[in-house]
């Protein structure tokens, strides 16, 4: 649940980018940092291993204006996608308010996408949260690779694999060019704020 500081009149919401290894979570955040410089209220910070795989998380704080006189601040995080960092993913997910699930459109990553979504479901459950209730959007990333002749999963198939039951807003994207990155984030913010207002009775 969003963190409300009555004294400073601030609301902090935590949005986590989740998804399989190498799907483009960090690339999403990098693009956001580059494009929404004015909104950034601090630097983007990355905890990587060599070969720029995320080890702990990326972190980017954004300010998105006021609601009822409260400054609304977003904390964007990515998790490490590599399967072995499961404990870290869970730590980063704690007290999450909204999730952007980034799926990899490359055909050979089909199974990795499904398993990562299951992992998200499981980790949320352990915090008493439900994947069907949490503000969630899905992004089908790396659509640009079709041009390079790389076999991609058709969007309809990804919808069936990942979004048949959830029926959440979904977006095609190419994070490396920025296509779809803003739309994904905006939709996620919208759902997160809606849910926050509901919880606060605003």
């Amino acid at each position: 649940m969003a963190n409300i500081n009555l004294k400073n009149r601030e609301i902090e919401c935590k949005i986590v980018y989740y998804g399989p290894g190498r799907c483009g979570k960090t690339t999403n955040l990098e693009y956001i940092f580059k494009t929404f410089r004015k909104q950034a209220i601090g630097e983007m910070v990355s905890a990587n291993t060599e070969g720029d795989r995320t080890l702990f998380f990326d972190f980017l704080p954004l300010g998105i204006g006021k609601i009822k006189g409260y400054d609304v601040r977003l904390q964007l995080y990515t998790v490490p996608g590599q399967v072995k960092y499961s404990a870290t993913r869970k730590m980063v997910l704690r007290e999450v308010d909204g999730v952007a699930f980034v799926a990899d459109s490359i055909k050979v990553r089909r199974k990795a996408n499904v398993e990562s979504l299951k992992d998200l479901h499981q980790n949320l459950k352990e915090y008493g949260l439900s994947i069907t209730k949490i503000p969630l959007v899905i992004q089908y990333n790396k659509r640009d690779l079709a041009k390079q002749g790389i076999p991609l999963l058709p969007v309809q198939q990804m919808e069936r694999d990942l979004n048949r039951q959830l029926k959440v807003p979904s977006f095609s994207a190419s994070a490396i060019n920025g296509d779809g990155v803003g739309a994904t984030l905006k939709a996620c913010i919208k759902l997160t704020l809606q849910s926050m207002r509901k919880q606060l009775g605003w």
Binding site: R22, G51, D52, I106, V108, L145, Q148, G149, I150, P151
Partner: peptide, 18 residues
């Protein structure tokens, strides 16, 4: 040729097993 192309791209993406 297409296998080799795919392999190179996957490698550049860090998808090493693939």
């Amino acid at each position: 040729k297409s296998f080799l192309q795919e392999a190179e791209l996957y490698q550049s993406q860090g998808l090493l097993n693939e």
